Amino acid sequence: MKTIGKLAQSLNLNVETIRFYEREGLITQPTKPISGYRQYDETIAGQLRFITKAKMLGFTLKEIKSLMSMDNDCAKVELLSRQKLAIIREKISDLQRLEKVIVDMTNTCIQNDDPTYCPIIDALK
């Protein structure tokens, strides 16, 4: 059992981040004893680790909340993961197209001999 400050420190999180997750319904705020501070148990610490790891994989808080409510229903988790993977692949494809455009624009600049003209600026107009 830890106070919110000690829990935040142990997980390398901000106290306000934990409070935000409480407000968003991702974790449950422990009841406050009559005298003293709320105590966060290992269950909540595990939920916070889950949230942190899922965020690192690109899941949104809405998706994370959904994952947390699936109770190890692997078929539902797989479906959500496949949907996320499709979004990631689409973003990768978009970035590859963007990379090609920037490379092509940069190459036109390299080939330009006129110091008063910039093909990149011209292309952006």
Rank of each mutant, 00 (worst) to 15 (best):
I18M: 01
E22S: 04
S10F: 05
L26A: 09
D113K: 15
V103N: 12
I92Y: 03
L98F: 11
L11N: 08
S81I: 03
S35H: 11
I4K: 10
L80M: 09
C74E: 08
L98W: 00
I51C: 06
M56W: 00
K62L: 14
A45F: 05
C109P: 03
D94R: 13
R89C: 06
I88P: 00
T28I: 10
I4E: 08
L7V: 09
K62E: 15
S69H: 08
I120D: 03
D73W: 00
R97D: 14
Q83H: 08
N72A: 11
N107L: 13
I27G: 03
R82Q: 15
L85P: 01
L80D: 01
L98G: 01
M56N: 12
L124E: 05
D94A: 14
T43V: 11
F20E: 00
L26M: 08
F20H: 08
I87M: 12
Q9G: 00
V77L: 03
I44P: 02
D73C: 08
D71N: 14
Q39Y: 09
L98S: 12
E99N: 14
K62D: 15
T52A: 10
F59L: 12
I92E: 02
I4H: 11
A45W: 01
C109Y: 05
A8C: 09
E24I: 07
G36W: 05
S81P: 01
M1C: 10
A75C: 04
L124P: 01
R23S: 07
V77F: 01
C118P: 02
Q9E: 15
K62A: 15
K125F: 05
Q9M: 08
L85D: 02
Q39V: 07
Y21Q: 04
Y40F: 13
A86M: 06
T106R: 11
G5N: 14
R23Y: 03
D122Q: 11
R89N: 12
A45N: 05
S66L: 15
D41N: 15
I121P: 06
K55F: 02
F20C: 04
K53T: 06
